[in-house]
Design a protein around this nucleic acid. Structure first.
Lengths: 351, 351
DNA sequence: ACAAGTCTTGAGAACGCTCTCAAAATGTGC
DNA sequence: GCACATTTTGAGAGCGTTCTCAAGACTTGT
């Protein structure tokens, strides 16, 4: 009954290979200056003994922690999660991150932090002290939270801001919101729509502004109007219902709506159903996000696919590559695509 | 330009409070034998300096790692994720786990491991060596993977098996699959249905057997037939389509179907639509899981809500409480509930 | 063949914490 | 007020790694 096999340490390997501790360390970390012959011998011992360095020890000895911390908005995440509205963002981020991290020998950890709390500094500070991550990934709305970015900058921890293209500290990664909105709008225009409305996200997210800009630019390019065709929601279902109602009340002639989140699009779909507007016959609908819920609605929604996983993956790579260099300035764009399903069609013939 | 503020260590606190290192450690860990007066003084210093123990150092010094590792099936997870089918299980697990962990000063880490690979031992072994978690949470199908449970038992790491009620090593947590299926079946019978079919999951998951058992028990209690009313899928959408077709081809008189996953239920819904069977007028549908996608389908589906988050939460608590005691035997049940939406109705009048 | 390099190796300290064990302080019973 | 038990405190080692720096083993040029 072999209980609790003692952990294999670097010392065991050194002994087994007949070299010093330090040499093993060099081999493990791909250091230069090791004779091929010695390297192979050590590798063989590592293999045989099944040695894997302890993350904790590595961290202790002042080197990297091999941990990337991903920060999400606690309030929003928990609300979406408790009400079973789906937390796809977390999924995308977690999985995209995990995969890329593991490819580089890193680990990803997810942390929920409140945006609106004045405990931000305390909570985040605690997480940073405890984990000492090599990099931090910020998602909206944290990406634009001064308290957070400054805290990270002060501590000298490299970080990436996702969904934020403002130049500033850290690496910024945008998903091309202006272009995506332009793409969606243009597609609708091509289908013959002339009254194309938008339900935008809150102004506190800079991506909301970019999406509105893209929509307006596409409309302007074709001489289409935008007046009265903009409503603002908070990305949530209820706000989508309110916005869609207001929009249709004010503009009975609207034939296409772009919603800034799947939830709001689904709400618009429901409003349309209530008013006996068939989608896509009477009303075309395009949503932002492309989370699983829009694949199974009736009809399935055409959506702008937010490449969150890919973006997070890029962020991880950047963070790992940059190492200690927390200098800012870089802005990376990962373009979104349009996934056409069944909620878009030719504009109805004019009445 | 204050760069990289040096980390606050236990030594700084000790100095500040004018006590020894060891005393601070005792206060931090709630050790006994510290005078209230001294404790308060130390606490004040901790507060003032913003001290938070380093996870790595804690781990190093031979105590706990404060990390709980959650294992998921890589193959299934990645497939669901890449195809945008939703990975709600991961969400539930991650969020339920994170919340409970943080309440106890722990952290949760998610790891994807292939079930079918013979690398299991290597992959898992590496993760365990690197992370040295205080506990591991296994989800189906890992919960019943001998290689994995034995590896964990051999290393003396406490672990919880979710969705598995077989007695065995580690703590078993079941979500009462037999009872849940019984509940769903009974509810349908109460609505007047007499031909109640089931699309079960694969036999390799023991929960599939339990669900079938619950369904059969409920039918037997009311003298209803089960012959020819069982189909097996693999939880995925396509398999649901096949199963539903086979079922309806063979039994045109079926008026109710219980599907063992949301994906399969949605597939059945689509099959019904193809055959002009109105749900719930002609066919009632109940699914298992209650992931976000079934809230937004048309009609929204009645579903057995799998309390994954709660179960993981319980698992975390158990693991933390048990500490080093990896003894097995315990079986904990967290009951599932039925969420009624619009896919269930009174059985249609007999033709 | 010798001095001056360059490449390879190893010894020892350090990281921040908890553990063990002994010393100091306090309390108790008579 | 003294011997003893008990509580409280601190000193020092140790956890598994990497870092710094010096020593040893080869080259090379002359």
């Amino acid at each position: 009954m072999a209980r609790v096999r003692k952990t294999v340490t670097i010392r065991d390997v050194a002994e087994d290979a007949g070299v010093s501790l330090q040499t093993v360390s060099r081999v493990v970390n791909g250091g230069p200056n090791v004779r091929p012959q010695v390297r192979d011998k050590v590798r063989a011992s590592i293999e045989r003994l099944g040695y894997v360095p302890s993350l904790a020890a590595q961290r202790m000895s002042g080197s990297r922690s091999y941990i990337i911390l991903a920060l999400n908005d606690r309030e929003r995440t928990l609300a979406d999660w408790r009400e079973r509205r789906g937390t796809d963002w977390v999924d995308q981020m977690l999985l995209g991150g995990i995969l890329t991290c593991s490819r580089h020998g890193y680990r990803m950890m997810v942390e929920l932090v409140d945006t609106h709390s004045d405990h931000v500094e305390r909570e985040l500070g605690a997480a940073l002290s405890a984990l000492q991550p090599d990099g931090v990934i910020l998602t909206p709305p944290h990406s634009e939270n001064r308290l957070i970015t400054e805290l990270l900058a002060a501590r000298g921890i490299p970080f990436a801001r996702i969904g934020s293209d403002a130049e500033g500290p850290g690496i910024a990664l945008t998903m091309g919101d202006e272009g995506a909105a332009h793409l969606a709008t243009t597609r609708l225009a091509e289908l013959g729509h002339t009254r194309i409305a938008m339900i935008a996200g809150p102004a506190s997210y800079s991506l909301s502004g970019w999406r509105i800009a893209g929509w307006k630019r596409a409309l302007a390019e074709r001489g289409l109007p935008s007046e009265g065709l903009l409503e603002v929601g908070d990305f949530g279902y209820e706000s989508g219902t309110r916005a869609a109602r207001a929009l249709l009340d004010r503009n009975p002639d609207v034939t296409a709506i772009i919603a800034s989140s799947d939830q709001m699009a689904l709400a618009a779909l429901e409003v349309a159903r209530d008013r006996s507007l068939a989608v896509p016959r009477d009303l075309s609908l395009i949503s932002f996000d492309n989370t699983p819920i829009v694949r199974f609605s009736q009809p399935p929604l055409t959506a702008i696919d937010q490449p969150i996983a890919k973006t997070v993956s890029r962020a991880v790579e950047q963070l790992i590559a940059r190492g200690q260099a927390a200098e800012g300035g870089a802005v990376i764009e990962v373009a979104a695509g349009l996934v056409e399903r069944s909620s878009t069609a030719l504009a109805p013939a004019r009445a």
